[in-house]
């Protein structure tokens, strides 16, 4: 682990503790929802790196297609994997929060639908390569899928939003995050956003290093096999 990674880890650790303290203890409970609302800090905290990861997949895929340098494929793949994890967190914390607040685990809210689609797109981006036998095709085909998927995401948000404004909302779906009044709530939110972003960056760096080490190991193994074979 390099010094940079160690510093990053330390910073992440501190910010994460602060975020926990603020979110769970210092920030006051929501007037309407009570303590349940505290999950919001983790919920929103995870969707943000999810988006970040997605933009990175778009960026990295374009860079790969232009340069054909495998490092960009690895970087986007790791980003996609982490994005998938964060999206899964959003999709699990969402219903936990929704049940006591809205009375149901799932509602066809624009954000919910979009996140579900985002999750599916991430899922296919990360997993499609396992079904491509030809290793030289894998990064290229995945990159194209990454770009197509990423370009579709804004449209998912756009269409679900327009859909909502044109159709009457069910009564159970009051706007949940309109209740932020207290400055401590804001601090807790920003702290958790920072903590999750640092977590994303840290995991990403770790993942890329791991991926490169794996590649190197594979190469060395191939070389060894050749030495033994010929």
């Amino acid at each position: 682990m390099s010094l940079k990674d160690k510093l990053l880890f330390a910073l992440m650790f501190v910010v994460m503790q602060l975020a926990l303290v603020w979110a769970l203890a210092i920030a006051p409970p929501d007037k309407l929802q009570g303590d349940v609302q505290r999950i919001f800090y983790f919920h929103l905290g995870s969707i943000w790196p999810g988006f970040l990861a997605f933009f990175y997949v778009l960026y990295g895929s374009i860079r790969y297609l232009v340069s054909r340098d495998l490092i960009w494929d690895r970087k986007s793949l790791v980003s996609g994997e982490i994005g998938l994890v964060f999206c899964s967190i959003v999709l699990t914390t969402g219903p936990v929060w929704a049940k006591p607040t809205w009375g149901v685990y799932w509602a066809w809210d624009a954000r919910l639908t979009s996140t579900l689609v985002l999750w599916l797109v991430f899922f296919f981006y990360v997993n499609l390569r396992n079904y491509i036998d030809d290793e030289s095709k894998r990064p290229r085909v995945s990159a194209v899928l990454g770009i197509v998927g990423a370009l579709m995401v804004p449209f998912v948000y756009m269409s679900t939003r327009i859909f909502e404004t044109q159709h009457p909302k069910p009564v159970i779906m009051g706007d949940a995050d309109s209740g932020i009044r207290d400055p401590n709530m804001n601090i807790a939110l920003y702290l958790s956003l920072a903590a999750f972003t640092l977590l994303y960056i840290y995991l990403w760096r770790l993942g890329v290093q791991q991926m490169l080490t794996k590649d190197r190991l594979k190469k060395l193994r191939g070389r060894l096999l050749r030495l033994e074979g010929f």
Partner: peptide, 8 residues
């Protein structure tokens, strides 16, 4: 050179 995975 052309490699398909570990196969050369």
């Amino acid at each position: 050179s052309k490699q398909f995975g570990e196969t050369i």
